[in-house]
């Protein structure tokens, strides 16, 4: 025989535990009768972890104090770096806390969890560093990063060359700080190529092209990013005349010359030349890869983001941004309570 009071007690116990889990208080129930210090200690363990994580993030910044003092523009990126590190720390805490409260990990598995979170941190750090580096490049025009992009383009050129029946007769290397290309120019003269493809930013490209022309080499030079800047033309002077660029023309350009070039190029090769398409391809590729890794959640988040962005344009006067996103979310859940892309 089961007494009603026993059932009620069991129900209450179940409810209390669930509520504690929701509030992030773990390690069993917390009673009012518990000593003050043990109660505060249980809660402080999580809060102090947050302080420690933030301190680590701050100390990393402190290590680079001198660099920061030397390059003042870096200060612009400082809040971003500290925000991201803080967020990563909080994420790690939140995820670990959830796992602990759901019983997915035990406190004894501390080292394992720590190692796993560290690995996640390194991967995310590398990715965010790359993203921030690219932002810095676009925003502040960092020449060094331009060089990296240039080298990547050169590698791409080498890879694609056989497809277009191009023979690479010789390869030349120069260092970032090189401004005198005497030996290199002599080699080029000896090899006598039909065309020269040269990567590098304007501070190398300018002297290089100028010295090639001074040596009497009339071989066409194909450059890319860096060659399209005014500074290149200033440094190279008259020698800049006739240099070819591989930077894709902008399809939205109003210049009839560029539009005619795009049309002719497509007619001749069957391949569109389009800077926007190239960037979109990269973005789409990254997104698709992301979706593969996150399953339906990434796709759902993207759909929600698109609805929120476009919804704000058309319904911004009726509802604010958050409300539009949530209205769509609720609508989706009414139709598919199991989630937008869930197979269940």
């Amino acid at each position: 025989m089961i007494l009603p009071c026993v059932v009620e007690e069991a129900v209450n116990r179940q409810k209390t535990q669930s509520l504690l889990r929701i509030s992030g208080i773990i390690g069993g129930e917390e009673f009012r009768t518990m000593p003050l210090l043990s109660r505060s200690g249980r809660r402080l363990s999580w809060q102090t972890m947050n302080i420690a994580l933030n301190l680590i993030a701050a100390s990393v910044i402190a290590v680079y104090q001198d660099t920061l003092a030397a390059i003042i523009t870096l200060a612009v990126f400082l809040p971003m770096v500290s925000d991201m590190s803080g967020c990563s720390g909080n994420q790690a805490v939140a995820v670990s806390m959830r796992e602990l409260s759901l019983g997915l990990v035990r406190p004894t598995e501390l080292l394992w969890v720590l190692a796993k979170e560290a690995r996640v941190g390194i991967v995310n750090g590398l990715f965010l560093g790359l993203v921030l580096g690219l932002i810095a490049y676009v925003w502040k025009g960092n020449a060094w990063l331009g060089l990296v992009v240039g080298q990547a383009l050169a590698a791409g050129f080498k890879e694609a060359a056989p497809k277009f029946a191009l023979d690479i007769v010789a390869e030349y290397e120069y260092a970032l700080q090189d401004r005198q290309f005497g030996p290199l120019v002599a080699k080029v003269k000896a090899d006598n190529p039909e065309v020269i493809y040269a990567s590098g930013y304007y501070f190398t490209a300018g002297p290089l092209v100028s010295q090639l022309r001074t040596a009497g080499i009339t071989t066409p030079v194909i450059g890319q990013e860096g060659y399209d800047s005014d500074t290149f033309m200033e440094i190279a002077g008259d020698a800049a005349e006739g240099t070819l660029l591989t930077t894709s023309p902008d399809r939205d350009s109003e210049s009839p010359v560029i539009q005619a070039f795009i049309a002719d190029f497509k007619k001749a090769t069957g391949i569109g030349t389009d800077m926007v398409a190239a960037s979109t391809y990269t973005v789409a590729y990254v997104l698709i890869d992301g979706f593969k890794k996150t399953g339906g959640k990434g796709g759902a988040a993207l759909v929600l983001g698109v609805v929120e962005a476009y919804g704000t344009i058309y319904f911004g006067k009726l509802l604010d941004r958050n409300a539009i996103a949530f209205a769509f979310l609720i609508l989706v859940l009414m139709v598919r309570p199991q989630g937008l892309f869930s197979r269940r």
Binding site: L319, A323, F326, L333
Partner: peptide, 24 residues
């Protein structure tokens, strides 16, 4: 129609929806 996590989300959504309507 919804349970658990999704119930929490829809109820939270209702409050955002309410504020969103009011503020405009």
């Amino acid at each position: 129609r919804v349970r658990a996590d999704f119930l929490a989300i829809t109820t939270m959504g209702m409050s955002f929806l309410f504020f969103g309507i009011l503020l405009q």
